[in-house]
Amino acid sequence: MTVLLALLVAPSGASAITAVPRSGGSSNADSIAELYKIILAISVVIFLAVEGFLIRALLKYRASNGAVAQETSVTPRSEIGWAIGATVLVAVLAALTFIKLPSIADTPAGKTITVNVTGRQYIWRFTYGNTLTSPFTYTQMVVPSDTVVVLKIQSTDVIHSWWIPALGGKTDAIPGNTTSTWFKAPTPKSPEGDLYNGQSAQLGGRQFANMLASVRVLTPAAYAVWLAKQTAELKAANKQSFDTRKKLTQDGQIPNLSPAP
């Protein structure tokens, strides 16, 4: 036991017990964490009361201590009482959920960009735009801070699940469907930007454990620079490949030529 406890508090990168989901990268994650904490508070109270009562009864009413059983029967009154109590509790929880829901589910107004997220065994692809020549990255998404980033999530093979814990909940990537979620990250502290890590949460096959994802948040200005550079590089690469193909076609080495980018 002591070894276990020592392990728990051991330093060297080992985390202590976590009791709340991650948050801090986006307001929807923060709202979820707040809702979580309310349920946590309620359940801790119930837990202590019930387990306390249980342990007390187990210790106190032992036949070996000469306890004599007194018949109990659950009266309709206590049954109805419990039912009302529990119903009120779940009604409160449901109400709180619906109160918090808009701050979690509704995409806020304001400056917005859309990133297309495509999951496939075992890598995430991010496309910044809707054309064939839009810039794209794999594994790491780059976004501007203080901007609503809407994600359109798809899969080309099996079901995956998009999840960066500090940026909010999961959204499944389902072949044949497009699902959507959003986040809005705060201004990064350093010029390289803030990094948020996550990974696919839905079993997608053998290397599912390594379907990692991260989001790098840059200031809007740095993001604009980054995007312009990506666009230019992609354009240059496309041009180069077009020129090469053109040359090969003229030399008669390959028959077809796709239209110029």
Binding site: L58, Y61, R62, V68, A69, T72
Partner: peptide, 11 residues
């Protein structure tokens, strides 16, 4: 819980 309460428990 009410069954255990005021019982004569044999463990």
């Amino acid at each position: 819980l009410s069954m255990l309460n005021k019982g004569a428990i044999v463990t």
